Simulated scan of single mutants.
Amino acid sequence: MAHIQTLLNHSVGFDFPLIQAPMAGSQDHRLAAAVAQAGGLGSIPSAMLTPDALALQLSNYRAMTDRPVNVNFFTHTSPLPDEAVEKTWQTMLSPYYDEFGIDSTKTMAAASRLPFDHAMADVLDAFKPEVVSFHFGLPAPDLLARVKSCGALVMSSATTIEEARWLERNGADIVIAQGLEAGGHRGHFLSNDVLDVSAQMGTFAFLPQIMRAVNVPVVAAGGIADAAGVRAAMGLGAAGVQIGTSFLLCHESNASPMHRAALGSEMAVHTCLTNLFTGRPARSIVNRIMREMGAINRHAPSFPLATAAIMPLRTAAEAQGSMDFSPLWAGQNTSGCQAISATELTLKLAKGFS
């Protein structure tokens, strides 16, 4: 199994196959650059950015380092709002609205999560990132061709063996094996029921099976938090590792003070997949809304529309110092979280490659 390192130009400074997982809303170019300066592959999440905002992120990144960068996008299909679904969802949330004295007819605009499109491809044309990664599959063939014409390697997440095979057939150069332990949104895309995760496995059960199923390099992701975890994944034959949660307490992270507090508390022992915050399963630290409504609720609007109704509750609760309605994205293993620079943490993790 070829290592990612052999797929990249050594002259641009990619020292070892450690990828910082893109974490939309919790990081920007600063975290990516700090990881890159230590020799890993920094990632810039773009699903919540406009093309102009992405161009600024990449400009700032290039000003900080000339090392490789991974730019990450979502490839979901944007759903049409369904008035009946929205009304049902607001009715279910109405007791909480009443608790905070919120007018349920005046929901706040939600942070958008947009799929990759030609406007974003224009930005890639201008900056030519070394790696482009996708979540929820791959973009349409014409868009994927544009990415490859920039010279970028293409990575995408698989949560099942079937997805890994699909990604290889449809043009992915590298498959990320996203184990069930991983924090944030699940990358699954082939199932008709996005709430069904019964076919998904833990990282170290999943990794060997995916490697037997495809011929492209496979990156291990989920539950890897320290050098020992890196060593274990590489020992199973992974081409590299992708790590996200461990970077959330780093100085360069944009995680909120409340999110940081949760990661450093006993709350972090309890994580669960939930669709309450966005409409799509994502692993979060368990809080009040998840306990009371159930982590998975089939009445939640489709991704990312569920965010609109939950946002006023989050805003009101956070104003009172409460995390009861906030998405506290985290993987099952928060033991690697450290309040140090991302550069220092990357160097610690890199010891797993020696």
Rank of each mutant, 00 (worst) to 15 (best):
Q178C: 06
I174L: 14
G183E: 10
A172Y: 09
E163G: 04
E162V: 11
D193A: 08
R165M: 13
E163I: 13
H188I: 02
V197M: 14
W166G: 01
E168K: 13
L195P: 02
G184N: 04
D196V: 10
S198Q: 04
H188K: 00
S198A: 11
T159A: 10
N170W: 04
G171S: 02
I174Y: 12
L167T: 05
S198N: 05
L167R: 07
H185S: 09
E168A: 15
T159M: 01
R169G: 10
D173R: 12
A177G: 03
R186H: 01
H185V: 04
D193Q: 12
T159S: 10
A158L: 06
G184T: 09
H185I: 02
R165Y: 02
A177S: 13
S198P: 00
V194D: 11
E163V: 08
S191D: 12
A182K: 03
G171I: 04
N170L: 10
H185M: 08
F189G: 01
I176P: 05
R169A: 15
N192I: 12
V194M: 13
V197D: 14
F189K: 04
W166C: 05
E163H: 05
R169E: 15
N170M: 07
V197I: 15
F189H: 05
A177C: 15
V175L: 13
A164T: 08
E181G: 08
I176T: 13
R169C: 14
E168R: 14
S198E: 01
H185G: 03
V194Q: 12
R169I: 13
G184W: 10
A182I: 09
E181K: 12
F189R: 06
S191M: 07
V194I: 15
L195Q: 13
A158G: 00
H185R: 03
V175C: 06
A182W: 04
E168H: 11
G171V: 08
R165S: 08
N192T: 12
I174S: 10
L167F: 03
L195E: 10
D193V: 06
I176S: 07
S198V: 04
N192G: 15
R186F: 00
E168C: 12
V194E: 09
L195I: 07
G183A: 09
A172H: 11
L195R: 05
L195G: 11
L180E: 00
G183M: 12
